[in-house]
């Protein structure tokens, strides 16, 4: 089975990102990491590839930087990566990103597309469904458990109230929640091999897309203001010396909880 997994490189979340004051775009350092939540999609892809003697191709859009995040993903065991990185893409909205990823995935060919449910930095949370529509696929979204039987994929789909059992025949797109699988740690061998694995970096033109229709201009949206949120009035902080529960009770009384 040929599996495409969408992964994203993001600025290290340990250092909060900043916005360019002029363009309001997120400032992206050369050193980027793999979005932690993508490890679940990669793991699922690897498990299904192992079960079917298939392959896993990573698909990503964004400034390539030094490809550190992509190498992290390859080190887990994926076979190769396609990173669409083109200055024309600066400022692309979610809809443009979806068109670019769909074109890259279609060019590779696939039986299964795997994504996360939302990215850590962008969290539009609508990318998987946009991709499915553009690729004319059913989408088994918010999967917290996945099984493959022949050519039928079954998932437990998280809902607000619990979960639904949902199924579809291949080809299909799955968006996987964190916790659905236990991501493997890269081995030393995996890390060494990742350095040699092919990373294809097509431009927008290579994918047959019009550069004028992507990037900020093609996104139909523009940031008009960035401002600090109104701050919460500061509270009190106490150290528990054995009696702190009494202070909590005072607050519960004051707020008429008890």
């Amino acid at each position: 089975m040929k599996i495409a997994v969408c992964v994203k490189q993001i600025p290290d979340p340990a250092t909060p990102y900043t916005l360019d004051p002029a363009t309001h775009f997120v400032v992206r350092p050369a050193e980027q990491v793999l979005d932690d939540t993508d490890r679940y999609g990669i793991e699922l892809g690897l498990q299904l590839a192992e079960a079917t003697s298939g392959s896993v191709t990573l698909v990503s859009m964004g400034p390539a930087g030094n490809l550190q995040g992509i190498r992290q993903a390859l080190a887990m065991g994926a076979d190769k990566a396609v990173v669409v990185s083109d200055p024309a893409l600066r400022g692309s909205g979610a809809a443009v990103t979806a068109r670019v990823l769909a074109a890259a995935i279609a060019r590779e060919g696939f039986d299964l597309v795997v994504t996360g449910t939302e990215s850590t930095d962008g969290y539009s949370g609508v990318m998987p469904q946009m991709l499915a529509e553009l690729l004319d696929l059913p989408a088994l979204t918010f999967a917290r458990k996945v099984s493959l039987e022949g050519t039928t994929i079954r998932v437990e789909r998280q809902t607000a109230a619990g979960y639904d059992e949902v199924e579809s025949a291949l080809p299909v797109l799955i968006s996987v929640t964190s916790g659905a699988v236990e991501p493997r740690y890269p081995t030393f061998k995996g890390i060494m091999q990742a350095k040699q694995k092919p990373v294809d970096q097509p431009t927008v033109a290579d994918l047959g897309l019009d550069a004028a229709a992507v990037g900020a201009a093609g996104s139909g949206q523009s940031i008009t203001a960035v401002r600090p949120a109104p701050e919460r009035a500061g509270g009190v902080k106490i150290k528990d010396e054995g009696e702190a529960h009494l202070e909590i009770i005072k607050v519960l009384e004051r707020t008429k909880v008890i």
Binding site: L19, H24, S219, G220, Q221, S222, I223, T224, A225, V226, R227, P228, A229
Partner: peptide, 9 residues
């Protein structure tokens, strides 16, 4: 931080 975004298209 609050960000305001307008539709342009």
């Amino acid at each position: 931080t609050l960000v305001e975004t307008e539709f342009t298209g």
